Amino acid sequence: MGHKIGLHFNYKGKRDKKSIIKELLVQSKVFNHEFKNQYEFFSPHRPSKFSTMFKINLKNLTNTYSKLFFNDFDIANKDKKKIIYLVDSRHEWKFLHPLKLNLSEHKKVHLVFHPDAWSKNGFSKIKNYNLLRHEKSIEFNNTLLTETDYLTK
């Protein structure tokens, strides 16, 4: 089907372009190690908070928020040849749920999602948030127990 995988890049509050690029290169190195150098795209997390994100392009990494890939939803929804952007921002599908998209009409989809932030049962935002906090707390505590067992000896 011609799908491409990309890094959904978290710039961890960095503000200057040099620091952002340095963090991007660190995260992409880890990502490429895990995925055997399969990807060449990155998608910044919450790019609208920092306009520099739209302008970062590197030799071997393409920014999916550049004008080549990113279109206004309403424009792309009307012009089926344009790439349509779907995102699960803050546990909600911002424009349209991907399963409601007619893929026979839209051949190019820019899909950004956070699979680690969803529950199996599709709870409300608050219930999902509390469930995730509980799950991550258990995971964190288990990690502490297994990684610090040398302290109890």
Rank of each mutant, 00 (worst) to 15 (best):
G2T: 13
H3M: 07
H3P: 02
H8F: 07
H8W: 07
F9R: 05
N10P: 07
N10W: 12
Y11A: 10
Y11W: 12
Y11G: 03
Y11P: 04
K14W: 03
R15K: 15
R15E: 13
K17M: 11
I20C: 01
K22C: 04
L24I: 09
V26P: 00
Q27N: 11
Q27E: 14
Q27C: 09
K29R: 09
F31N: 01
E34N: 05
F35P: 02
K36L: 11
N37R: 12
Q38M: 11
Y39V: 02
E40L: 07
F42E: 02
F42M: 08
F42R: 03
F42K: 01
P44Y: 05
P44M: 07
H45L: 15
H45A: 10
R46V: 13
R46W: 12
P47V: 09
S48A: 14
K49H: 12
F50P: 00
M53W: 05
M53F: 13
M53H: 10
M53G: 04
I56M: 07
N57D: 13
L58D: 11
L61E: 03
L61K: 02
T62C: 08
T62W: 01
N63F: 08
T64Q: 05
Y65I: 06
Y65Q: 04
S66I: 10
F69Q: 05
F70E: 03
N71K: 10
N71D: 04
D74S: 14
N77T: 03
N77V: 01
D79H: 10
D79W: 02
D79K: 12
K80Q: 10
K82T: 02
I83E: 02
I83W: 12
I83Q: 02
I84P: 00
Y85V: 09
L86Q: 08
V87P: 00
D88C: 07
S89Q: 14
R90K: 15
H91L: 15
E92G: 06
E92Y: 12
W93Y: 13
K94P: 00
F95L: 04
F95P: 01
H97T: 08
P98N: 08
P98A: 06
L99N: 14
N102R: 07
N102K: 12
H106C: 01
K107W: 04
K107A: 13
K108R: 12
H110D: 05
L111D: 00
L111N: 01
V112R: 04
V112I: 15
H114R: 09
H114S: 08
A117F: 14
S119I: 08
S119P: 04
N121T: 13
S124H: 03
I126K: 13
K127R: 14
L131H: 01
L131I: 14
L131Y: 04
L131Q: 07
L132S: 09
R133A: 04
R133K: 14
R133D: 05
H134Y: 15
E135A: 07
E135L: 12
E135N: 12
K136P: 00
K136E: 04
K136C: 06
I138P: 00
I138S: 01
E139W: 14
N142P: 05
T143I: 08
T143Q: 06
L144P: 06
L145P: 00
E147L: 14
T148I: 01
Y150R: 11
L151D: 06
L151V: 10
T152Q: 06
K153G: 09
